[in-house]
């Protein structure tokens, strides 16, 4: 098991990847995805765990997943951080009944694995998500799910779309609770005491 790419903020190199979607609206999910995501590869974070082990001289050492997993036998029943040791301590997994190997590819920890067994690059993780989250994936394709910035009129400028894992931690994808920080200051509207 490894600590993988995306929004999981274990290491310093984890930057949200951003999908650039042209106006044509071609599918970014299964199939066509790889080609478009290739352009992002250079910018995507290096995978692996950044570790700061006590006594180790080179702090912030980045260790590739395969360093360990090449030599270990995967346990398909592992589904929680408590089952793991070394790098995975403290990892919160709250994602339905999924186990680690539902998504991670035991035969190549540098990739993810679709339900049918095909491997898929980390950059195309949306393809993996879409297997279960079809309605969201369909909405995403139509531009109805997920945040974006830039241009509504893509003939005039670029639109940057967020990927699934920019907003959803793949290990615990529910949106985190937030606290509103900005409120109108209405005169004569007494600040209500904390709500029920």
């Amino acid at each position: 098991m490894l600590i993988a790419a995306g929004a999981l903020a274990v290491g310093a190199g984890v930057v949200p990847s951003v999908l650039r979607q042209p106006r044509t609206g071609a599918a970014i999910l299964p199939g066509a995805a790889d080609a478009r995501l290739a352009s992002d590869a250079a910018a995507s974070p290096r995978r692996g765990a950044v570790v700061d082990l006590p006594g180790l001289e080179h702090a912030n050492l980045r260790i590739a997943c395969a360093t360990c997993h090449d030599t270990r036998e995967p346990n398909p029943l592992n589904a929680a951080a408590a089952d793991l040791y070394l790098f995975h301590q403290g990892l919160v997994v709250r994602h339905g009944a999924l186990t680690c190997l539902s998504c991670h590819n035991p035969s190549d920890y540098g990739t993810l694995r679709l339900a049918g067994g095909a491997s898929v690059a980390f950059e195309a993780s949306a393809t993996l998500c879409a297997q279960c989250h079809a309605p969201q994936a369909a909405d995403y394709e139509r531009g109805l799910h997920g945040g974006m910035t830039g241009y509504w009129d893509t003939s005039r400028g670029e639109r940057l779309r967020k990927s699934c894992i920019d907003c959803h931690d793949p290990h615990a994808p529910a949106m985190p609770a937030m606290r509103p920080t900005f409120k109108p200051i209405d005169r004569f509207l007494p600040p209500r005491e904390e709500h029920r």
């Binding site: 531009g143 945040g147 830039g150 509504w152 009129d153 907003c167």
Partner: peptide
Amino acid sequence: RGRLPACLEACPTGARIFGN
């Protein structure tokens, strides 16, 4: 000028949809 409104870009949940 073809850009998205500020409130849409700021939305962290992607709840907002704007267009022609």
